[in-house]
Design a protein around this nucleic acid. Sequence first.
DNA 1: GCCAACGTTGGC
DNA 2: GCCAACGTTGGC
Length: 153
Amino acid sequence: MAYWLMKSEPDTFSLDDLRDRPNSTEHWDGVRNYQARNMMRDQMKLGDKVFFYHSSCPQPGIAGIAEVVREAYPDSSAQNPESRYFDPKASPENPRWFMVDVRFERKFERLLPLAALKAEPALGEMLLVQKGSRLSIMPVTPEEWRQIMTMAQ
DNA sequence: GCCAACGTTGGC
DNA sequence: GCCAACGTTGGC
């Protein structure tokens, strides 16, 4: 089982939104970055754990935890001209973009702010805190996961 | 709103 | 294949 971090703008889709969906499950559409897509498509497995990260908001940070409940399948929003994620180069033969399904697992009592992650020396190597890191989906090492879980208590 | 960092596009 | 121009991300 692997660990991940996935970013979402809470104005668009927050951890609370995920919790309130039917079965607390939603498909993670709209990923339009090849590196993120490749990780999602090739490496994300059923049962993997995900830190749900809130970005581009007053309090960026990790809000809680989700779980991968369906492995990658074509992102239908890429083929929907009405969608803001529409990609004219996507087709049924070549879907180009993929998504997974994630299910709410739990919300931290307090959001763990990015500033706290940055201030923790043990997380100095974490992708998230690297300068210029913009990946919306990134791997988290077991050590980083454990460290962050400790901080979230 | 600013802007640094990064990714993508397209001309050559 | 290079690289300038442009668009996006995302913290602050």
